[in-house]
Design a binder for these strands. Structure first.
Length: 292
DNA sequence: AATAAACACAACCGCGTCACG
DNA sequence: CCGTGACGCGGTTGTGTTTAT
């Protein structure tokens, strides 16, 4: 919910006069944290004045979101978190917010930084292109790697034709009563970084991106879809179940402990996924279920 | 011990999206 | 339907710390 705009007001971010920049002091942190705890998040533009801070609203929002929020988990990224970041990045590309939404306690900024400083270098050292997650081209044409395989950003996404990453798995997800996504042929990410797959609307194949179709649906649906892709791609759980190719996922119920948090975190309802795996005769431990 | 280089991460910037009048 | 402004996102920069010389 956004606050109604007020005509004639100047955005403080645009007028630098009197606005402090640079690292936050503990005193500023305390003022901001206390104010947000009391007044709640939002109305960032007017927050600095109301809270008595000499910062712009953007800076306040960023500081709260990335550092002061109680739910922010700081410190070392665990191996299972790293593994999940890698999987999600392979699916989603540099969509840090989407990735962060599926790793509790981690912020988009933290994941982005971790990727840029650790994971991308780690992949390169393993001979893997961090952008495409495919083996790097041979050494002699490595000189312009960051531009050489950049897809045409101007072209519209085409299902099964311009995916920057393609994968061979079998899965179907029912988005709503009329839209079905099948990953039986190919799925992957388009040049714009969105997940693409074969889409059918009322039984007729249509072009589009899965995420766009899911927009407006319950976020659980997107989570379910991503989860199914993650497990499929890495573990071949469903792909090996030939008779189960047409399994339809339903949005999982919210996890009791997550019920009051953002809906994206309902993704972590283990009981739902365990029952899903059991319905296939699967075992999440055997297949390396990515969460504890 | 001094300095430079490399690294890690916090913070900023510009732009796209969306809600509202 | 259009213009405006708030918000959120991803890319980039800035700054403090650590390591190498």
């Amino acid at each position: 919910m956004r606050s109604p705009r007020v005509k004639g007001q100047i955005t403080p971010c645009c007028s630098k006069v009197g606005i402090k920049r640079g690292p936050w002091t503990p005193e500023e942190d305390e003022v901001l944290a206390n104010f947000v705890k009391k007044e709640g998040e939002g109305r960032w533009r007017t927050l600095p004045k109301r809270a008595g801070l000499q910062r712009c609203g953007k800076s306040c929002r960023l500081r709260w979101m990335n550092y002061l929020r109680p739910s922010v988990k700081r410190g070392h990224i665990a191996p299972d978190e790293e593994d999940l970041i890698l999987r999600l990045h392979r699916l989603l590309g540099n969509r840090w917010s989407l990735i962060a939404g599926r790793i509790p306690g981690r912020t988009d900024n933290e994941i982005k930084n971790y990727w840029n400083t650790h994971l991308s270098k780690k992949l390169i050292s393993q001979g893997i292109d961090p952008r495409t997650h495919k083996p790097l081209p041979s050494f002699h044409n490595n000189s312009k790697t960051h531009e050489s395989n950049n897809p045409d950003q101007s072209s519209a996404p085409q299902i099964n034709s311009c995916c920057s990453q393609q994968n061979q798995t079998n899965n179907v997800i029912q988005i709503n009563s009329s839209v079905v996504v099948t990953t039986g042929n190919n799925w992957g990410t388009t040049s714009s970084g969105k997940v693409a797959a074969s889409l059918e609307e009322n039984g007729v194949e249509v072009e589009g991106e899965v995420e766009d179709k899911i927009m407006g649906e319950e976020d659980d649906t997107l989570s379910s879809f991503l989860e199914s892709l993650i497990n499929n791609n890495d573990n071949q759980v469903l792909g090996n179940q030939q008779s189960q190719d047409l399994h339809v996922f339903h949005a999982p119920p919210p996890h009791p402990t997550m019920a009051s948090s953002s809906s994206s975190h309902q993704f972590f309802d283990l009981s739902f996924w365990e029952s899903e795996f059991q319905s296939f005769g699967g075992d999440h431990q055997q297949y390396g279920y990515p969460f504890k």
